[in-house]
Write a protein that binds this DNA or RNA. Structure first.
Lengths: 232, 232
DNA sequence: ACCTGAACACCGTTCAAGT
DNA sequence: ACCTGAACACCGTTCAAGT
């Protein structure tokens, strides 16, 4: 006969800051950032909640930590990109879209980034590389500085939408029916949505494709910067 | 002799959804969004915490409500703007910068907007007006749609910064001293900051002026859209 | 209809104590 | 050094009860 079943052999592995952060990222990935509590994190890691405080000073520091883990994941990818001789715009574009792919695997991350106030070393390294690509492309430090502000969170691969008028379980037809009732109050918005929705009647991603829109906005900014570079 | 002192005559005024929301905005304005708890809000309004649930179904609804109050404040202002015959770009620019002024009085609002998922009627009215200005300027519905995505939160007058390398109580000199130690790891970032900081040695608003940068990014986008309008 | 008291489930966190 | 149990102060919220 086998020996008595031991239900949780996992806690054998000693706790560490790294293991705590990875577990926290796992919880956020699987159940959303709202599910990330100290007690639940402790449970996943096979310890008591209070043990976590030995490896991470408090929850704010935990959030700082997982934000940095994600940016490190981004850095690992973009640092391997080969962008020699393809123009600064294409190089920057590729770097940003690669970062975006990482964020699409950690959809809670943008929300966490926005709440972090303390400097994130990995984020600084990311920006350092981005600045380098622009400098190599001939942009002045002054223009690069403006560029970083203009890009904002887009530099890291995301841009939060303020509202999504087409969201929800409603199909395109339902959406259009619901819109009809608002036509009196919101003539321009309804008119636009009717036309845009009609343009892509069976788009899988709904009335607008976020990836397409992200790239539109990104290119609009990059093209504008390139034009300023030329006139300078 | 006067009658016995009654310490709190305020609770005479009956509760109402409107009063609750205004009090909530007041708390957030004065003490930050973190100070807005149901218990504290009840105290300010002269009632028990549970009474609030009669006027607002839960805290999420409360946040939805105060977000809408702020957008209404914006609408009240931008609806009075006279932009007849000044070109779509200037009209849009003026509308957005006016919205921004409201947000500068409620600095917690952007953070709340980003967490709201349900449709905000006042926000839809705001966008309806914005769309109208663009349509009048000759932009197609398709281009206007792209424009709204490209602008993102900038349409409402804010753009969150991912990090601010020059933030803190450090003076320009202190910042530059601290940067020197990082020059090896972050050559491009440090190089840029040294030069930009030097350009405006005594800028009151620190190493970069947010309002200037906001307008730079806004104009970059508006100019790009106008160029697309012309070629279309 | 409007408001409340007591109670519940859940947070993050402190602190003294264990090995 | 690393981990824990008990406890504290604070959340949002339910529910039955008051007027």
């Amino acid at each position: 006969m086998a020996s008595q079943a031991e239900p949780a052999p996992e806690p054998r592995i000693p706790l560490s800051r790294d293991r705590v952060l990875r577990a926290a990222v796992g919880i956020a990935d699987e159940h959303g950032i709202g599910a990330l509590t100290m007690r639940r994190l402790a449970e996943v890691v096979g310890a008591e909640a209070m043990s976590l405080y030995y490896h991470v000073s408090n929850k704010e520091a935990l959030l700082d930590g997982i934000a940095e883990v994600i940016v490190q994941e981004i850095n690992d990818i973009v640092d391997q990109l080969d962008v020699t001789g393809c123009g600064w715009k294409k190089a920057v574009r590729q770097r940003i879209l690669s970062a975006r792919e990482v964020l699409l695997r950690h959809r809670w991350a943008p929300g966490v980034f926005e709440t972090r106030t303390t400097g994130n070393p990995a984020l600084m390294r990311y920006h350092d590389g981005l600045i380098g690509l622009m400098r190599d492309g001939g942009l002045s430090n002054d223009l690069v500085h403006h560029a970083l502000h203009a890009l904002g969170s887009r530099a890291l691969g995301f841009s939060q939408e303020l509202f999504d008028p087409g969201t929800g379980p409603a199909s395109g037809a339902d959406t259009r029916a619901g819109l009809a009732g608002l036509e009196g109050q919101l003539p321009n918005l309804v008119g636009m949505l009717m036309e845009v929705a009609h343009d892509e009647p069976d788009s899988t991603l709904g009335w607008c494709d976020d990836q397409v829109e992200f790239e539109f906005g990104l290119d609009l900014i990059l093209d504008g910067l390139d034009r300023l570079r030329q006139t300078a």
